[in-house]
């Protein structure tokens, strides 16, 4: 009986020691990751501010991120606009016996929130994943080391063009997403609710100010920064072959999405406090 108790106590101590060690390692690993992220992002900004931007590579990244993401942005925002018009029209018809302010509600929803956030989600899934997978594969196949031996800084060569392209293209895609979404809403409003286009456009534009547009536009710059900085960092930190690339890519997309959604609240609150809404 005494022996059994001693064994149980020893097991409990071992478990406690392991748990404490695991927690410490997790904290250390997290802090190390944050440090590396800050270091790489700082280095990227250093090269950008120094004007050392590889133009050819930046242009091809802009085409890849902007032009090749456009069809999926077109589809998602068009249908988002359509479903918004359907839902708003139905709700207002139930409440007021007729669909009112469909354009106003739809315009505000899209320009303030849905346009920037949906575009960021699509770009995080498409562009962020591609960036991490590409840089991660280069890391595990020693291509980053090869760049270094050929006198090229991997951050300058790979991260800088992607940073510049993403920060320019995501806000542009957001503007297109807003416009396409509003047109999607127009089709449903005109055909399903028999509201004339003039009334719809009046609803959309009457209450919209430059601050409304700026609110979403400014947020999209921050979302672009989050997506591209996380994607590059996860790529450069990839370890362990094909499995490592898969894990890094999943982690990149998930981290970007969570940070975009969390930061959306705080950015919105900050912009509202500054009177940009």
């Amino acid at each position: 009986m005494v022996n059994e108790n001693i064994v149980k106590i020893a097991k409990a101590r071992r478990l406690a020691r392991k748990t404490a060690k695991f927690s410490l390692e997790s904290v250390y690993s997290f802090l190390n990751g944050v440090g590396l992220y800050a270091n790489r992002t700082g280095e990227t900004f250093f090269w950008i501010l120094k004007g050392q931007i590889p133009l050819k590579s930046t242009m091809s990244q802009m085409v890849e991120m902007g032009w090749r993401s456009f069809p999926i942005i077109l589809l998602t925002s068009f249908f988002t606009g359509m479903v918004l018009a359907l839902q708003v029209g139905t709700s207002t018809a139930n409440l007021f016996n007729e669909p009112v302010y469909v354009g106003t509600i739809l315009g505000f929803s899209l320009v303030l929130e849905l346009g920037p956030v949906l575009t960021a989600v699509v770009v995080a899934g498409r562009v962020g994943a591609a960036i991490t997978a590409e840089i991660g594969t280069m890391k595990v196949t020693e291509q980053l080391d090869a760049l270094y031996t050929l006198g090229t800084n991997p951050v300058k060569y790979l991260a800088v063009p992607r940073f510049v392209s993403c920060i320019l293209m995501l806000p542009l895609l957001t503007v297109f997403a807003n416009i396409i979404g509003i047109y999607g809403g127009l089709i449903v409003t005109v055909h399903s609710w028999d509201v004339s286009p003039a009334v719809y456009w009046g609803d959309v534009l009457d209450f919209m100010e430059i601050g409304t547009f700026l609110h979403g536009f400014i947020k999209s710059f921050f979302f672009a920064f989050i997506i591209v900085s996380i994607a590059c960092h996860k790529g450069f930190s990839t370890e362990g072959g094909a499995e490592g690339v898969g894990k890094a890519t999943t982690s990149s997309v998930m981290t970007s999405l969570v940070l975009v959604l969390v930061s959306d609240y705080f950015l919105s609150a900050l912009l509202m406090a500054l009177g940009i809404d």
Partner: peptide, 28 residues
């Protein structure tokens, strides 16, 4: 002053063989 031949070649996937070989000539 240093050249390195990697165990698994480490050629740049996105570039052609000509661009790979020319890489160091362009940068160095």
């Amino acid at each position: 002053k240093m050249g390195y031949v990697f165990q698994e070649s480490a050629l740049f996937d996105s570039l052609t063989i000509e661009e790979n070989v020319a890489f160091g000539l362009r940068t160095l």
